[in-house]
Design a protein around this nucleic acid. Structure first.
Lengths: 253, 253
DNA sequence: CGGACCCTTGATCGTACTCAATTAACGTGG
DNA sequence: CCACGTTAATTGAGTACGATCAAGGGTCCG
C-alpha cells in the first residue's frame, strides 16, 4: 500500500561521483541551488564545486547516514527521500530533532562540535549530495555568493529550531506541523496539499513532544472536522486556511 | 537589594566608537575573541576589524536593542549585562527564546530573513559591540579564520536551540537551566556556582515553558533538598553534580 | 501612602500521558 | 497457503503533572 515517493523517480543507478549531464535537473530544487547556480557553468569554479560534491546512497528505511560522535567532514543535501535527525539520551530514549525533505540540508549543527551531535536516519529510500565541508569552506572564501549562501542556510535553520519551542496544545502543534510540511513540499516543487507522511505516528509524536496516541487522536479529530483526509500515511490537506488558523502561533509570519 | 552585576565594573563612560587602548581586556572573554585575536595586532586587518565594531549602550532594564521586523544590519556581542530575545505572538503573548550573557552574540537568526525575527530586550544595564554584518562578511571572505569563526558561532547556536526541545519534567528543565547558566558564566570567567539571576521568575518560566508558579515551587524544592541556595535573585549552586544528574537528559554530553 | 510588580504558597482543574486492548498490515517459516 | 510474530495505528479508561485561579507579603517608586 505504501505508494511511490512523491519525488516520482527514485532509483537512479547509484552514481558515486557527480557528472554534469542531467544533474542540473535535480539541483534546481536543492537548497544549494543558489550556490551552485551562482557558480555558473563554464567557469573554472564549476569544477571546484563539482569536485566537492559526491552522490551517496541509496540508503534504505532505517539506515544511518551518520551517527552521534562521527567526525564531521561533510554536510548532506537530500536528493530524494526523507531523513530524520535524532538524539538518543542516556536512557536510550530517542528524541527526534527534525525531518528533512528533498532539497534540504543536514549536518550543519556539526560544524561547531566537529562531530555529529545527532543521528541521521533514512525514513525511506534516500539519496544525498555529499559536500565536503573543508572544500566548501575554501570555496566560500573565494566566492562570496557561496559564503553568503552558507550563512543563510545556517541562519534559516536557527529560525526553524525556535518553531517547536513554546508551550502549545496538541492541536496547535499538529496543525502547524502539517502546514509546515505542506509548504516545504510546495517550495521544492511537490504538491503542498497531497503527500505521503514518510515518518511513523511515533516519530511525529516524538518530534512534536506528544504521545503517539495523542497524534492519532488529533488526526482522527482533524479528519472528522474535514480539515484533512488521511488514510494510513497518505495525507491530503483539505482546509489549509483552517489548519493555519489553528497553528498560527507556531507558524512563521 | 539588587546587587551589582557579576561583571563587576559595569559603567565605562559610553564610548561610541571602539578605540584600541584597554579594549583588549574586554575582548578576551568575548565570543569573537577567536576572530579578533586571529586578526592579530599590527596587521592591516586590525583596522578592518575595528572599523566594523562599534560600541553601543548602555541600555537599561527593559530597553529594546532591536525589534521584530527591524532591518538586519549588524550582530551584537554582549559586553556587559544580560539580554533576552523573545517573540510576541498575535495574541500579544511573549515567548522567550534565550538569554545572552557577556561575551555571547545575538542577531545571528536574522541573517536569513534579513530582518530581525525577534525582539531583544536588556534585562539590566547592558552594553554591546555592534558588528556591521556586511563589513563582517566582507572581512570573512578575506580571512578564513573569521569565516570559520562565524560558521562555528552559527552552528553552536543551532546546538543550544535543540536543548529545550524535548518533553521533560519541570525539575529536569530547571536543573539543566541552572547548570547551563553556571557553565556559561564559568566559560566567560565569572563564578559558575554563584551568580545573580538577571531575569525574573516569569522570564525563566516562559523560557522553560512552565508557569511562573511552577518555577517558584521547583526552586523552593531544590533549596529544601540543599541543591541550591537562593534568596531573591541571588543564587548559589550547592550541588552541581546533583543538578547535573537531574538535568542530564537535557545537558550536552 | 498608594500602586505596580514580583515572588511565594495553597486549592482546584484540565490536557495530555500511561496503561491496556483491538485491529490491521506485513514478513517469515512451516 | 496459512499460522505466527512483529510492528503500527487506533480507541478507551484512569491518572498525574503542571496550569490556572486565588490570596498574601515584599519591595520599589512615584
Amino acid at each position: 500500500m505504501r505508494s511511490s515517493h512523491p519525488a516520482g523517480r527514485l532509483p537512479d543507478p547509484p552514481s558515486p561521483i557527480a557528472n554534469d549531464g542531467d544533474e542540473v535537473h535535480f539541483c534546481r530544487t536543492c537548497a544549494f541551488a543558489g550556490a551552485c547556480i551562482a557558480v555558473g557553468y563554464g567557469k573554472p569554479e564549476l569544477e571546484s564545486l563539482h569536485c566537492l560534491v559526491e552522490h551517496v546512497g541509496p540508503y534504505r528505511n532505517g539506515d544511518h547516514v551518520f551517527r552521534t560522535g562521527d567526525p564531521f567532514r561533510a554536510i548532506f543535501a537530500v536528493r530524494a527521500g526523507t531523513v530524520k535527525t535524532c538524539l538518543v539520551d542516556k536512557d536510550g530514549r530517542e528524541q527526534v530533532l527534525g525531518f528533512y525533505l528533498p532539497g534540504e540540508v543536514i549536518g550543519l549543527n556539526a560544524i561547531y562540535p566537529e562531530h555529529f551531535p545527532c543521528d541521521a536516519v533514512a525514513l525511506e529510500n534516500t539519496q544525498f549530495c555529499r559536500f565536503s565541508f573543508p572544500a566548501m569552506s575554501a570555496l566560500a572564501a573565494r566566492m562570496p555568493a557561496v559564503q553568503q549562501h552558507l550563512f543563510r542556510l545556517l541562519s534559516k535553520e536557527l529560525g526553524t529550531a525556535s518553531l517547536l519551542a513554546g508551550d502549545h496544545s496538541a492541536d496547535e502543534r499538529m496543525a502547524a506541523f502539517l502546514c509546515d510540511l505542506g509548504s516545504r513540499y510546495a517550495a521544492r516543487g511537490f504538491s503542498g496539499t497531497r503527500f505521503t507522511l514518510s515518518m511513523s505516528r511515533g516519530d511525529i509524536a516524538n518530534y512534536l513532544r506528544l504521545a503517539a496516541e495523542t497524534v492519532s487522536r488529533v488526526l482522527t479529530r482533524f479528519r472528522s472536522q474535514h480539515l484533512i483526509a488521511i488514510e494510513g500515511r497518505e495525507l491530503e490537506l483539505l482546509d489549509v486556511k483552517g489548519l493555519e488558523k489553528i497553528g498560527q502561533n507556531l507558524l512563521p509570519d
